[in-house]
Simulated assay, not measured.
Amino acid sequence: MPQTVYRRPWPTWLSVALVFPLTIAWIALIIIQGTSGAAITIGAIDILVLIVFTILDPEVTIESRKIMPDGTVVNVRRPIVGFKRLESPLGVTGGYEVRIDGYRYEPAYIRL
């Protein structure tokens, strides 16, 4: 059973480029206007963007333990969401080996 790893569907700098200006605008609006409708709207958009980037990031994983058919217990990492076109199989030999970091990587819970 091969392991599966995923690449990130966007460049790393994109999340910072979107979240940083939104956070600055949110803080500025709160300082200037208090809790106005614009500040609440920008804050909600900022939080929504953070949540989306966090959930779609393949490096955000859920860790668990799994008992393999041969009886060994291994630590498993699975991303929440993974894109099929960005997945890469590892260890196609079919073994239950773990990576050097001590984890076995399995397909994402939600594959798009």
Rank of each mutant, 00 (worst) to 15 (best):
Met1Ser: 06
Gln3Ser: 10
Gln3Val: 05
Tyr6Phe: 10
Arg8Thr: 05
Pro9Met: 03
Pro9Asp: 09
Pro9Gly: 08
Trp10Tyr: 15
Pro11Val: 07
Thr12Phe: 10
Leu14Tyr: 12
Ser15Trp: 03
Val16Arg: 11
Val16Cys: 07
Leu18Asp: 14
Phe20Asn: 10
Pro21Val: 10
Pro21Trp: 15
Leu22Gln: 08
Leu22Thr: 01
Ile24His: 08
Ala25Ile: 14
Ala25Pro: 07
Ala25Trp: 11
Trp26Met: 12
Ile27Trp: 12
Ile32Lys: 15
Ile32Glu: 13
Gly34Tyr: 07
Gly34Leu: 10
Thr35Tyr: 13
Thr35Ser: 15
Thr35Arg: 14
Gly37Thr: 07
Ala38Tyr: 08
Thr41Glu: 13
Ile42Pro: 00
Ile42Ala: 06
Gly43Ser: 04
Ala44Tyr: 09
Ile45Gly: 00
Asp46Val: 05
Ile47Pro: 01
Leu48Asp: 06
Leu50Tyr: 05
Leu50Arg: 04
Phe53Met: 04
Phe53Asn: 05
Thr54Tyr: 06
Thr54Trp: 06
Leu56Phe: 09
Asp57Pro: 00
Pro58Gly: 12
Pro58Glu: 08
Glu63Pro: 00
Glu63His: 03
Ser64Cys: 03
Arg65Trp: 02
Arg65Leu: 10
Ile67Met: 14
Ile67Gln: 02
Met68Arg: 05
Pro69Asp: 02
Pro69Glu: 03
Asp70Pro: 01
Asp70Ala: 10
Asp70Trp: 08
Gly71Glu: 01
Gly71Pro: 04
Val73Met: 14
Val73Asp: 06
Val76Asn: 05
Val76Phe: 12
Arg77Tyr: 09
Arg78His: 10
Arg78Ile: 00
Arg78Pro: 00
Pro79Met: 01
Pro79Thr: 03
Val81Gln: 11
Val81Met: 04
Phe83Cys: 11
Arg85Gln: 12
Ser88Pro: 06
Ser88Leu: 15
Pro89Glu: 15
Pro89Leu: 05
Leu90Tyr: 09
Val92Ala: 03
Val92Phe: 09
Thr93Tyr: 14
Thr93Val: 12
Tyr96Asn: 14
Val98Tyr: 09
Val98Trp: 00
Asp101Ile: 08
Asp101Ser: 10
Gly102Ile: 11
Gly102Val: 11
Tyr103Gly: 10
Tyr103Thr: 00
Tyr103Asn: 07
Arg104Asp: 04
Tyr105Ser: 04
Tyr105Ala: 09
Glu106Ser: 10
Pro107Glu: 06
Tyr109Leu: 11
Ile110Val: 15
Ile110His: 01
Arg111Cys: 02
Arg111Phe: 03
Arg111Tyr: 07
Leu112Pro: 02
Leu112Trp: 09
